[in-house]
Design a protein around this nucleic acid. Structure first.
Length: 426
DNA sequence: TCTGGGGTCCTAGGACCC
DNA sequence: TCTGGGGTCCTAGGACCC
């Protein structure tokens, strides 16, 4: 059997790079992309990283002087644009392998097993070149005998110029050196807690971790940790996941643009998020029977704090928005306490199954063979055709003072005719 | 004034059953 | 005085990911 070879293709500073593709005058400028509500920085261009700004920094805490001096540009996140650019990247990658796992919006694992006749480093460079040419986006490529080592290789490729953005660690004579260079907090699968624990135990880099005994690793980091370490040793334990598995839960939650104090406003916001969550559910042809609602005050403020949640089972799985709106209202009445300044509300749908696999009821029609499905399909179609959320529920209100802020939004370059970029010949 | 959102998996412990 | 053992299911909480 052929030795396993996996490539991880990862877009560099994905959101920031997407913004740059359509704004050539920003090419070499430090730019950042903000989270929902223009809260924190979630993506930084290399130029901005160089200025010492860190991911996760609240936008308002970035030094005003720095912004002015280096002409830093900050953008609200434009997920419509990023989603579309991601689809273009993934489509480009499909021509390089029959087996592709889309791992996140900006990363994919490609199986290169059986490509032994090729020089995989060259092949990686080809991939990089093609993605750049077709989408305008820079990527890095890491290649290894397991997903975790491909991740390591990718990190190495990103940080070392001489690699030209592509690194194959598979049979590299310096694999040990590279593993020693990866500190524990940079290993895929090691977060803050495990990193602290490993350091307490004298393990500071990936190579040292590969030398720890299996039993100790499993005791401390569960079976998940053990699999990861085996992968670091070059034994593949994680398969490529070729088909997307259906979602097990759907969450819709956002911080408010400004504090919410009244039950009425809270109800409207919750209804709005609820509507979106159930839309997502229908898009995947699924139904859900568990609804959870949670709310909380602003934990960063020195004010009375309150957070609570509750859930409700529907009698039958459904994807009919009003079913969930009623349940949301019921739960909110139970957990809402007046007198607090609320910052956030969220909806979670769980116990999700495909519409055709939902349990039946002897006395009631299911979502599938009911007028409810017809009404929902009709509404979805109208919203699809006429632009998002032309048709909404009265429960979600019209004042929408709680809506999130997006003060620095760029155009929907690739998904709206009105926003299409114009090229002018000189 | 302003501090994100959306996911997954694993484990321990309790409830319950035989 | 002596008070089983094994299995399953569910939930909460903790860890991780991008």
């Amino acid at each position: 059997m052929a030795k396993e070879r996996i490539a991880l293709v990862d877009c560099n500073s994905f959101y920031a790079s997407c913004e740059k593709v359509f704004a050539p005058h920003l090419r070499n400028k430090p730019i950042g992309v903000l989270s929902n509500n223009d809260g924190i920085i979630v993506a930084l261009s290399p130029e901005l990283k160089k200025l010492g700004v860190k991911r996760g920094t609240p936008a308002f805490k970035i030094n005003k002087y720095l912004i002015k001096k280096f002409d830093i540009r900050l953008f609200s996140s434009n997920y419509t644009l990023y989603g579309d650019m991601s689809a273009r990247v993934m489509k480009t990658l499909t021509q390089f392998t029959p087996e592709l796992e889309i791992y996140s919006i900006d990363e994919a694992f490609l199986s290169l097993t059986g490509f032994d006749h090729l020089n995989l480093t060259d092949y990686g460079k080809e991939i990089k070149k093609m993605v750049k040419k077709w989408t305008g986006l820079p990527v890095s490529v890491g290649i290894g005998p397991s997903k975790t080592l491909a991740k390591v290789a990718n990190r190495f490729a990103k940080k070392h110029r001489f690699t030209e953005g592509v690194f194959d660690i598979s049979d590299h004579p310096d694999r040990e050196k590279v593993l020693r260079w990866i500190s524990v907090e940079d290993i895929w699968g090691v977060g803050r807690q495990y990193a602290k624990m490993l350091r307490r135990n004298g393990i500071t880099n990936a190579f040292e971790l590969t030398k720890a005994p299996d039993k100790w690793i499993q005791d401390k980091m569960t079976i998940v940790g053990l699999r990861m370490v085996k992968e670091l040793r070059g034994i593949p334990c994680l398969d490529l996941e070729l088909d997307v598995d259906p979602k097990k839960e759907i969450v819709s939650s956002k911080s408010f643009g400004r504090a919410v104090t009244s039950f009425q406003e809270m109800k409207e916001a919750a209804a709005d998020y609820c509507t979106r969550a159930v839309e997502k559910l229908r898009r995947d042809k699924q139904v859900a029977s568990l609804l959870m609602v949670f709310l909380s005050t602003n934990r960063f403020k020195n004010e009375p704090q309150y957070a609570n949640y509750a859930s409700l089972h529907l009698p039958l799985p459904s994807a009919y928005t009003p079913d969930f709106l009623h349940a949301t209202h019921k739960i909110l009445k139970k957990i809402f306490r007046p007198g607090y300044k609320y910052k956030k509300v969220g909806i979670m749908l769980a116990e999700i199954t495909h519409q055709t696999k939902a349990p039946l009821d002897l006395f009631r029609p299911t979502y599938l063979d009911d007028h409810r499905k017809i009404v929902m399909d009709c509404m979805d179609e109208i919203n699809e055709k006429m632009g998002n959320h032309k048709m909404i529920y009265a429960a979600a209100g019209v004042s929408r003072k709680w809506q999130m802020r997006r003060d620095h939004l760029t155009p929907h370059y690739t998904t709206n005719w009105q926003d299409i970029p114009i090229v002018q010949a000189k």
